[in-house]
Design a protein around this nucleic acid. Structure first.
Lengths: 339, 339
DNA sequence: CTGAAAGCGCTTACAG
DNA sequence: CTGAAAGCGCTTACAG
């Protein structure tokens, strides 16, 4: 590895001159002459000099890195968010440092410690909906500028940008009830998360608005993480079909495909017999057959707001606790009809 | 930020004692006594000491980081690869540093420079199929241990783990011809990549094997990157339907959905009128209706082999140039029938 | 067993 | 304009 000292020797100048010529020199540092700078730059280029970033970071006290912790299994669903965050961060002159975790508190802690060790204070947490959800936010207490995507599961105040789960879900149920559905199933699983909780509330509120009775069994609630395997979907349908539902609100792409497929195997058609609404929209959901009525969370907006909030609070002493909910909307597709 | 010096002062010992007590001390370094170590660890814990990773990296000369450059828009398709790589790297005691890029050589170069600046020599490149594809591999010349996922577009020798595009595609065409198809369209776009090239060859070879004539028009080739928008799919179908194809081999999930949907709008049924084979399989493709006949690239195997190859070559002086092709297979689904 | 000291490769205030 | 030198927070060979 070529160092500034090597360049200095080759150019016949001091090491500090090399530093100034190549990498600026902040504060009250005096500049080197135009001529010298050029000479040094040439020598450096010929030798293939590149700064050692550790040394630089150690000597400087600035940082232009944003850390982000994301669950690796969500990259698919959140491609849009990741792309937009990457784009905006780069544009703002920041570098993204991505910690890919999966489903493990220890894993998250490892990256948190790394980030702290690198003195990265600006951090986005996008991996905190687990059965250990309450244990995640405290880890981020140690950062000066943490922003969560999705409301964190804690009473402590953190800055976050979150889909407005309540409003989005309410809109979906309202739409179903308005179009004549009476027995809407929300397949929530027993896995306790903030989003699931407020969705249940939204379901109750929407039913109350229409003065319709809500059978508690309509809130499907088994100790399962998700419905993305055939076995679990079978379990779900076994449980809820006896209730004669006319609509089901359930997970994302794979889950929806499974649901439609298994309903068909049981002789039920979508949407003729049962309407379906998806909780998350995915890239290209408009092109499925039938294309799916889905809750559009406005991920791009969430990405933009997250970066905006983060950048707004870089370097501030007091930690930001803004809570931003992004209102999404229902994308009406072919999986629902009026009853 | 609490430093070792702070801990040393509070514990009434030397700074080097702190270093040894907390972080090991390699080489010929003598250990501190059990008792002292415990004392120092307590003090450090109380003060909330955490090592500055820049200083550590600068002082040490080891590295336990694997860099990976990946296109952010592919995270969806490659979720499995990312998860598996993350898992295996962590398991091997390595940390992953992810450079998320999108579609820009400058972007890739930025991360390459960063990685070099951090003296990360073990690096996975998973973002090199662009119209500037030949400009990417030279950037990785500067690493001691680079591994590409998918064969890089260069005559220079690089280590890589790649789907066996030729064999996989040949199997698909062979399957179609064997089951009575005669007019198989390969929608390749004019965008020149290694995989597209060998697929064309596989198409020719398969047709030759069956002594069937291949119309050059069956190789659809327009200056488009992909077919993932309705407009481009329309363009594709306008072009190829006059040829009366009985099978189409085309992109991934969104593209397949679009294709089936637009064929339906034109009064053509899949698979009754036209069979479809997808070039990439995606999570949950088995559950679509119809579920799709797709080329399974064995991404998990690719991930495993990539990490294995990388770890095998950590620290070696001579750069590895192993070329590993992973044979996939055809996942037969409902989008194809015998003719 | 313990600690003083050199060194990693930079930045930058300061003296000439 | 130029460079000697202190300092960033660690590691580690070495002397006591």
């Amino acid at each position: 590895m070529i160092t500034q000292a090597d360049v200095a020797k080759a150019a016949g100048v001091s090491q500090s001159a090399v530093s100034k010529a190549l990498l600026g020199g902040g504060g009250k540092t005096t500049k080197v002459s135009e001529k010298m700078a050029e000479h040094i730059q040439n020598v450096a280029k010929n030798l293939g000099y590149r700064p050692n970033l550790f040394a630089q970071r150690l000597a400087r006290n600035t940082q232009n890195v944003i850390g982000i912790i994301i669950d690796s299994c969500c990259c698919g669903l959140y491609t849009d968010i990741m792309m937009e965050i990457e784009h905006l961060a780069t544009q703002a002159g920041y570098r993204l440092q991505v910690g890919l975790v999966h489903d493990s508190l220890a894993n998250i802690e490892t990256y948190v410690n790394d980030f702290l060790g690198y003195d990265i204070q600006n951090i986005i947490c996008f991996a905190h909906y687990y059965d250990f959800a309450e244990q995640v936010p405290p880890l981020f207490d140690r950062f000066r500028n943490p922003v969560f995507i999705s409301k964190p599961m804690t009473s402590e105040k953190f800055a976050f940008v979150s889909p407005d789960y309540y409003a989005n879900f309410y809109e979906a149920v309202d739409y179903l009830l308005k179009s004549g559905h009476r027995k809407v199933i929300y397949a929530k699983t027993a896995y306790d998360t903030y989003d699931a909780r407020v969705r249940v509330q939204a379901l109750r509120d929407a039913y109350a608005k229409y003065h319709l009775p809500l059978d508690e069994a309509q809130i499907f609630c088994k100790p399962l993480r998700n419905m993305d395997t055939p076995e679990l979907m079978t379990l779900l349908l076994d449980d809820i079909l006896p209730l004669k539902p006319d609509a089901i609100i359930v997970g994302g792409q794979t889950c929806i495909n499974l649901c439609i497929r298994q309903l068909k195997e049981r002789g039920l058609r979508v949407p003729e017999d049962i309407s379906i609404v998806s909780l998350d929209c995915w890239p290209g959901h408009r092109y499925c057959i039938p294309n799916v009525t889905t809750i559009n969370n406005e991920f791009m907006t969430i990405a933009r707001e997250t970066i905006r909030l983060l950048l707004e609070n870089v370097g501030k002493r007091r930690r930001c606790t803004r809570e931003i909910f992004i209102r999404g909307h229902l994308d009406q597709g072919e999986t629902c009809i009026s009853r």
